[in-house]
Simulated assay, not measured.
Amino acid sequence: MKKLVKIEYALLLIMLLFLYFYKYNFSWIWLVVLILVPDISAIGYLINTKIGAYTYNAVHSFIFPTIILIMFLLLNQDISFWLLIWFMHILMDRSLGYGLKYTDNFKHTNIDRMDN
């Protein structure tokens, strides 16, 4: 089941890459520069695993980018490249098994235990 979930995330990532490059014609340079920016949220782990999990999960959950996407759509605005990159980052992480973190250990995620 874990492999199926990872494949689903990977397919969604491919769909967003298609939108990014072919529908919106956004720059690959910005994608390369910004794709790992959300990982800055892991800095909370320098304090402790609980704070780290909260900061990481706040940025790696679909909640905030989805709210922003809904606001863009309600305001009749075009989707921005950084919002697509944010979604792509989350999907990339999830397809690799880096899910939302539990507070006990960075490697303990909602998808898998990374230390197995």
Rank of each mutant, 00 (worst) to 15 (best):
M1E: 13
K2H: 07
K3W: 07
L4W: 11
L4G: 11
V5Q: 10
Y9R: 03
L13G: 09
Y20C: 03
Y20R: 00
Y22Q: 13
Y22P: 01
Y24Q: 01
Y24W: 08
N25G: 09
F26P: 00
W30F: 13
W30S: 12
L31K: 04
L36N: 14
L36F: 15
P38T: 04
P38S: 01
D39H: 13
I40W: 09
A42C: 00
I43H: 01
G44A: 08
G44D: 05
L46M: 13
L46E: 09
I47E: 04
N48L: 06
G52M: 05
A53W: 03
T55A: 08
Y56E: 02
Y56C: 05
A58S: 10
V59I: 14
V59W: 13
H60W: 06
F62V: 10
F64S: 09
I67C: 11
L69W: 14
I70T: 08
I70Q: 01
M71Y: 14
F72C: 01
F72S: 03
Q77G: 02
D78W: 10
D78Q: 15
I79Y: 07
I79K: 02
S80E: 11
F81K: 09
W82C: 02
L84D: 09
I85G: 01
I90W: 05
L91P: 00
L91T: 04
D93C: 04
D93R: 04
S95R: 07
G97H: 11
G97M: 12
G99Q: 08
L100M: 14
L100N: 06
T103C: 07
D104N: 13
D104L: 06
N105F: 07
K107Q: 14
H108L: 13
T109M: 00
N110W: 00
N110F: 02
N110K: 00
I111M: 02
I111E: 05
D112P: 02
D115K: 09
N116Y: 10
